[in-house]
């Protein structure tokens, strides 16, 4: 292990003026706590300017009230909404966001309670954006029963399966065996990490708010990093992504990948998904940093990161 890059001050989005906007998708069944979470994100935004899109009743709305209440960042956006059969609603909402990209740091989408967040996250692959993860909220009190519901059971399970991170809510109303039961049940459905709400904003976002240089990681969470001593093969990266130890919430980095043109590739591992994008800056870091749940063995985390530095 070389020098220790912190989690929050890891400088991925450097100074490029129109670098792509991260797009975070928040999903979960009716009443799971999506709006509650988003309100917390807004309150805790540390100057990060968010555009919030609400996808409801087959429409996409840019939520004026929420954006306005988050002072200084009011965007006067025309209502980008669609009939379920007019497919350009999301496109035009994102076009509007893009026109305002210079005034924004992030897009957050709240998906309807019966919507499929993983599908919505595809929009994060549009030019001008990148997908920064799908967070699916799960009401711990009701999820196991809900999953059996003849009307919405499949919908809820499909939401869970599309998550990069599962966030268990309403746990304040449950005792710890119940929380444990719900967590284990979720683990049988999908391999994404499960966290108990509320969690620190930094865990939901891949990238630090610009200009902040605060503590390296939220309390109790474990971080570790590795400096790569040479170019890494894509096949090694793929294997590494697949062998992520349980407990790893996400990893990110800038590395040089053989057979890719760019000097540095932005690597994002959120849940099971590995996303690679060319990185525009000249800076060469060759570093990957990972964050894991409290209780994850440090040795396992480091061993895993070191897979990226295979012995010759």
């Amino acid at each position: 292990m070389g020098h220790h890059a912190g989690w929050k001050n890891f400088p991925l989005r450097l100074v490029m003026k129109q670098s792509p906007l991260p797009l975070t998708v928040i999903g979960g069944y009716l009443g799971a706590g999506k709006t509650t979470l988003i309100n917390r994100l807004l309150a805790d935004s540390q100057g990060e300017r968010l555009a919030l899109l609400i996808n409801d009743f087959g429409d996409v709305n840019i939520d004026q009230s929420l954006i306005t209440s988050h002072d200084g960042d009011t965007i006067s956006l025309t209502n980008g909404c669609i009939c379920c059969s007019l497919a350009d609603g999301f496109a035009s909402a994102l076009d509007t966001v893009k026109e305002n990209a210079h005034r924004l740091d992030r897009v957050v989408i709240e998906v309807s309670g019966v919507g499929q967040p993983a599908k919505v996250a595809l929009w994060g692959q549009s030019p001008g954006f990148y997908s920064d993860g799908v967070v699916v909220l799960v009401n711990g009190q009701s999820i196991m029963q809900r999953a059996e519901d003849p009307y919405v059971g499949e919908t809820v399970l499909a939401q869970i399966k599309g998550a990069d991170l599962l966030l268990l809510t309403h746990t304040d109303l449950m005792d710890s065996p119940q929380v444990e039961e719900a967590t284990q049940w979720l683990a049988t459905k999908h391999q994404a990490p499960v966290l108990e709400s509320p969690v620190a904003t930094a865990l939901l976002y891949g990238l630090p708010p610009q200009g902040t240089d605060s503590d390296p990681a939220p309390v109790d969470y474990l971080t570790a990093s590795v400096v790569l001593n040479k170019t890494v093969d894509k096949s090694i990266l793929d294997l590494w992504a697949k062998t992520r130890p349980t407990g790893v919430i996400r990893a990110k980095g800038l590395v040089k990948i053989s057979d890719r043109a760019e000097n540095q590739t932005d690597v994002q591992l959120f849940g099971p998904n590995l996303v690679l994008r060319p990185h525009p800056s000249d800076q060469t870091l060759n570093t990957v940093v990972a964050i894991a749940r409290p209780g994850t063995p440090r040795a396992a985390l480091i061993k895993w990161l070191n897979q990226l530095n295979p012995a010759n």
């Binding site: 497919a87 350009d88 999301f90 496109a91 076009d95 595809l122 929009w123 692959q125 549009s126 030019p127």
Partner: peptide
């Protein structure tokens, strides 16, 4: 396939719906 990918078609995609 599906709107997100279709929207990569840029202006032609937007004109397709816009004209309607």
């Amino acid at each position: 396939q599906e709107p997100a990918a279709m929207s990569l078609a840029g202006k032609p995609f937007r004109s397709f719906w816009g004209r309607l």
